[in-house]
């Protein structure tokens, strides 16, 4: 199974600048494993502790894989896999200033 994978700007340094690459696999997990074999380190940017990293969205064709079985989502020959950065954030009270590393739980601003 060969699929086209669309790579977001932030990960293109890992794919030699390529915006679209091909990969093989019957599930998203296999596709990611194949990608990691071709582009060392890419897998760690997509998967953490066996699940999809919260900083990325991955779609198979039009579906966000979080709603279709995550890493076990099946892919077929010719499918389009799209990786996007999750655009998110929020108003925690823990401000980043001058390398201040005080950790606070996000969303705890009590606003």
């Amino acid at each position: 199974m060969s699929v086209a994978v669309s790579v977001p700007t932030i990960l293109r340094p890992m794919t030699k600048g390529e915006k679209s690459v091909t990969a093989e696999g019957g599930t998203l997990a296999e596709v990611i494993s194949d990608l990691d074999g071709r582009y060392a380190g890419l897998g760690d940017r997509l998967v953490k502790n066996g699940t999809l990293h919260r900083f990325v969205n991955i779609y198979v064709n039009d579906e966000d894989v979080r709603f279709t079985g995550g890493l076990e989502t099946a892919v077929s020959d010719g499918d389009q896999v799209t990786i996007l950065p999750a655009v998110a954030g929020g108003d925690s009270r823990a401000q980043v200033a001058g390398g201040d590393s005080r950790a606070q739980v996000a969303g705890g601003s009590g606003a």
């Binding site: 977001p8 700007t9 932030i10 900083f55 990325v56 950065p85 999750a86 655009v87 998110a88 954030g89 929020g90 108003d91 925690s92 009270r93 823990a94 401000q95 980043v96 200033a97 950790a103 606070q104 996000a106 969303g107 601003s109 606003a111």
Partner: peptide
Amino acid sequence: EEVVVVYHSHTATEAYPSRTDVSYAGEPQ
């Protein structure tokens, strides 16, 4: 086209990126 600006509001604190904002920031351009 590409994303030139990502904007969002903070409704109770100053307009400065939070730790969460920084951890998610995925558009280097």
